[in-house]
């Protein structure tokens, strides 16, 4: 698979990131190397083998429906760069109607 400028732009958009031309070039070559490495693995014939999504299904690690482990609002917002006394504040994402 060839890593194109178009693909880099698409991924940047999905990741809400932006790159200058130089960074783009660098990313392109790094990503190309990674993908080529993974493509090597794909040469293996896995016909008839179920995808392994996790290491095992044997252990049902479910928990009981119990309230615990909450933190206070002060603790929750400790690292937030912008906030008021109740809410996290983020750049406006839509224009109100």
């Amino acid at each position: 698979m060839e890593v194109t400028d178009q693909l880099i732009d698409h991924l940047a958009k999905l990741s809400k990131l932006s790159f200058n031309a130089e960074e783009k070039q660098e990313l392109k070559s790094d990503l190309q190397k990674m993908i080529s490495f993974v493509e090597k693995l794909q040469e293996l014939d896995t016909t008839g083998i179920e995808p392994l999504t996790h290491m095992g299904y044997s252990d049902n690690a479910l928990r009981d429906d119990v309230v615990k482990g909450m933190v206070s609002r002060e603790e929750a917002m400790l690292n937030a760069p912008v906030k008021d006394d109740q809410f996290f504040k983020v750049p406006k994402v839509i224009n109100p109607q």
């Binding site: 429906d65 309230v67 482990g69 909450m70 933190v71 609002r73 929750a76 917002m77 109740q86 809410f87």
Partner: peptide, 23 residues
């Protein structure tokens, strides 16, 4: 449910903002 899908935060409606949260 009393708690959330993947953690023990309470799930009451209309509580003060950001008081039913965890790491």
């Amino acid at each position: 449910t009393e708690s959330k899908l993947f953690c023990g935060d309470r799930t009451l409606f209309g509580e003060p903002a950001n008081t039913q949260v965890s790491s």
